[in-house]
Amino acid sequence: MPISAPEKLLTVDGLHAGYGKVEVLHGVTLHIAAGELVALLGPNGAGKTTLLRAVSGLLPWTVGTARFDDVSLCGMSPREAARAGLVHVIEGHRVFNHSSVNDNLLLAGFDLPRRERLARVDEALTSFPEIAAKRHELGGSLSGGQQQMLAVAQGLVRRPRLLMLDEPSAGLSPVLVDRVLAVLAQLRTSGTAVLLVEQLVEKALAVADRVYALAQGRVVLTADAHEQGLTHRLEQAYFGQDATTLIDG
């Protein structure tokens, strides 16, 4: 493989990863360029979450390569990855229930200098006025949607160059989903790359530049998000080959 083009922020090549004896990813290859919004789709159990965890250092792996800004991610901790600008917002809006919104955000900037940290928290909150109003309430008292916004805001405190989000729409009302996705679109225009794992395919396609579909631990589809007939190809990827003929017939 030639030296990756400079605009490729994240390159993953032949990545294998799993839990104990169970290998979930059987050689995943993908890349994300700076400032790009990429949607990662796929049925349950395809390995989307596993891929994000492997890239961000939450799940150790040995086979394959993953480079961020041309630095190998192998063996890197989530802390080091976050310092490098690769931030992972995990699934299930797991904010700290017993800490206030403000403290949740301050914790995201734990190793920043104090003044910088405070400034970044204010900055992150500008994207989410809903939770800015609840700064001093406990994380646990927020609604699911607000917690998800808080989780995204935690990611923003780091001023990431690549923000990876795992199903930010899960459990949210359609209005809130649109709010979160709008913030992501806005982030992209300001130059932040986004890797979005989503179940809501159509909503994801609406904001994404490109799309990867993962099935059974492999990339089975890669396409431009606005390509013709993409939904059809996704159905194929989800339901297997013969399903679509029946759906069409």
């Binding site: 049925p43 809501l200 395919v201 159509e202 159905e235 989800y238 399903a243 029946l246 759906i247």
Partner: peptide, 17 residues
């Protein structure tokens, strides 16, 4: 199975529309 495959809502639920 044949009925489910042709069920539009099912396909949509899977694709999350």
């Amino acid at each position: 199975p044949a009925e489910i495959r042709m069920h539009k809502e099912v396909v949509s639920a899977y694709l999350g529309a």
